[in-house]
C-alpha cells in the first residue's frame, strides 16, 4: 500500500523516510520545523540525530539490519532535545526505512523551545491533553501549597501562643518544659534559676491588680534585659519566674547574673505616680554535663535553693547542693541524679 506524503504528514507529522544508505528522503512538517534552519532532506540521518539506544548500533548498517525497533535519540544541534522513535521497513525490504518520532517526556520543553502549536501535533496525539494536565495540576498544586503554607503559619502562631504567657510575652510553664527537655536531650550543661518576687503581694493588695500586672510586665522586660540572648525567661506562676541559662561555664557567671537580676528588680517601679518596691529571691541549680536529671528533679532542687534564699532573709540567691535538702524543712524525697 502506497501512502501519499500529504496523508503521512497529517498522520505522522514527525516522520522521516530514509533510503538504504541512511539519507533522509522525506520529513514530516513538525520534525522539519524542529530542525530548522537545517533542511533535513538530503542529510544523513545519523548526522542530525544522535542515537542513544539501542547502544550497540555503530553505523547505519547495524540499524538497518536490526529490524523494527524502538529508538531513543537526541538532536545533535542545540537544545539537544530528547526524542523517542520507532523504526519500521514499510515495504518489507531494506530499500526504504521509516522512522516516526515523538517528544516523549521532553514535550514540555519542546513546545517552548520550538514554539509548537496545536497544528504541529496529529489530531490523535495526546500531547495537548498532556500539556493541559501538566498546567492544570501545577496550578492546583501551587494553590494547595499556598494553603499548606497558610495553615502551617497558623499552626506555628497557635503553638507559639500556647507556649507563651499572655500577660508578659514570656514562655509559660509548658514552654519552659519544652526548653528543658530539649536541653536534657542534648545532654547540655545549663542552669535553672527559680525566682520569686518578694513583697509583690503588697503591691497587689495596696495598689490593685492593674498595678500588679504592670509590675509583672516591667519585671519581665527587665529580666530579659539582664540575661543573655541565649537564655530563656519564663513566667511559671503568679509572681514566679524561671530563667534557663545555657552554656554556663562558672559559678561566678551564675552569681553575677543572679545579682544583676536582684538589683534590677529592686529598682523602684513607677506606677501612675506610686512607687512600687519589690525584690527577688533566687534558687539556682547548675546541671553539669553528663548529669541526666528529670525535669521535676531540677525544679524541685531549684525550689529547695529558693527556700534557702527566702529563709536567709530575701533578696538572696542560693546555689543548690544536696546538703541544702538535708537542712531544709521541705518535705520531699532526696532526688537521685542518674549518671
Amino acid at each position: 500500500m502506497q501512502m501519499r506524503s500529504e496523508a503521512l504528514a497529517i498522520l505522522c507529522p514527525m516522520h522521516l523516510l530514509l533510503d538504504a544508505q541512511g539519507y533522509i528522503l522525506q520529513a514530516g512538517p513538525t520534525i522539519a520545523k524542529v530542525c530548522q534552519p537545517e533542511a533535513l532532506v538530503g542529510k544523513r540521518f545519523l548526522d542530525v540525530f544522535d542515537l542513544t539506544r539501542p547502544r550497540a548500533i555503530a553505523c547505519f548498517g547495524d540499524l538497518q539490519a536490526a529490524g523494527a525497533q524502538k529508538l531513543h535519540l537526541k538532536l545533535r544541534a542545540a537544545p539537544h532535545t530528547a526524542l523517542k522513535g520507532v523504526l519500521v521497513h514499510p515495504s518489507g525490504d531494506d530499500s526504504v526505512i521509516m522512522i516516526n518520532l515523538s517528544f516523549g517526556i521532553s514535550i514540555i520543553d519542546a513546545v517552548r523551545d520550538f514554539e509548537l502549536t496545536n497544528a504541529d501535533f496529529a489530531a490523535t496525539d495526546l500531547a495537548i491533553e498532556m500539556l493541559y494536565l501538566v498546567e492544570a495540576k501545577t496550578a492546583a498544586m501551587s494553590a494547595s501549597y499556598l494553603l499548606n503554607m497558610r495553615l502551617q503559619g497558623a499552626r506555628i502562631a497557635a503553638e507559639e501562643q500556647a507556649y507563651t504567657d499572655t500577660l508578659t510575652g514570656l514562655k509559660n510553664r509548658r514552654g519552659l518544659e519544652v526548653i528543658l527537655s530539649r536541653l536534657l536531650k542534648q545532654n547540655a550543661s545549663f542552669a535553672v534559676m527559680q525566682i520569686d518576687l518578694d513583697y509583690f503581694k503588697a503591691v497587689n493588695d495596696t495598689l490593685g491588680h492593674a498595678a500588679g500586672d504592670f509590675v509583672l510586665q516591667t519585671v519581665a522586660q527587665n529580666m530579659v534585659a539582664e540575661t543573655r540572648e541565649q537564655d530563656v525567661v519564663a513566667r511559671v506562676g503568679g509572681d514566679e519566674f524561671t530563667v534557663v541559662l545555657s552554656e554556663v561555664n562558672s559559678e561566678g557567671v551564675l552569681r553575677k547574673i543572679g545579682q544583676r537580676i536582684i538589683e534590677r528588680v529592686e529598682k523602684p517601679i513607677d506606677y501612675q505616680g506610686h512607687e512600687c518596691r519589690i525584690s527577688a529571691s533566687i534558687g539556682t541549680v547548675w546541671i553539669q554535663p553528663g548529669e541526666m536529671p528529670e525535669i521535676s528533679d531540677i525544679l524541685s532542687d531549684a525550689d529547695v535553693a529558693l527556700y534557702a534564699s527566702k529563709n536567709a532573709g530575701r533578696a538572696m540567691q542560693t546555689l543548690y547542693s544536696p546538703d541544702l535538702r538535708k537542712s531544709s524543712n521541705l518535705v520531699g524525697p532526696q532526688t537521685e541524679r542518674r549518671q
Partner: peptide, 10 residues
C-alpha cells in the same frame, strides 16, 4: 497564546 507559555496563577 502559546502552548509553552504557562504562567501559573498564584
Amino acid at each position: 497564546f502559546s502552548l509553552g507559555g504557562g504562567a501559573y496563577a498564584d
